[in-house]
């Protein structure tokens, strides 16, 4: 027979706004920025489906300062997502052993970030090259 002795340590309701949890909150919300970009594309798809006039209005919105500012914020947030995502990666995979030595987690993050960064730069440059 076990007697239930519930004790819940009190915690401030705004715990997520203060260190060390704030970093966690910011990281999670950077994932929401990913969805916001998805929403921009979704609005574009709906306007494309509605026709040239509607799509023209969408393009005019993309050219507006509000959109440029929004997308600069989205870009910064998604870049933060990229870095934190690959910081998590080594924690979610089996130990990587090369030549009998475990590869440090920070090393895996650095190598993957370099590869992904190189790939992204190539993608942008190739797009610019082919669109000429």
């Amino acid at each position: 027979m076990s007697e239930k002795r519930p004790f819940t340590r009190p915690i401030a309701s705004d715990w997520w706004a203060h260190p060390p949890y704030r970093a966690y909150t910011v990281r999670e919300l950077s994932g929401v920025a990913v969805a916001v970009y998805g929403a921009v594309l979704f609005v574009g798809l709906v306007s494309l489906w509605r026709g040239p006039d509607s799509y023209g209005a969408f393009l005019r919105f993309l050219k507006s300062p509000v959109s440029i500012l929004l997308n600069l914020v989205l870009l910064a947030a998604v870049l933060y997502h990229v870095v934190t995502w690959f910081q998590i990666l080594p924690k979610t995979m089996p130990k990587l052993i090369v030549d009998g030595k475990q590869v440090p987690q920070a090393r895996i993050t650095t190598l993957v970030l370099r590869a992904v960064g190189f790939g992204a730069v190539c993608l942008v440059l190739l797009t610019i090259g082919f669109a000429r």
């Binding site: 990913v34 970009y37 959109s67 600069l72 989205l74 870009l75 690959f86 992204a120 993608l123």
Partner: peptide
């Protein structure tokens, strides 16, 4: 998003 997100935002919404 981690692999293609920044490049996509840069291409479709900024450049």
């Amino acid at each position: 998003a981690a692999v293609f997100g920044p490049a996509l935002i840069l291409i479709t919404d900024l450049l």
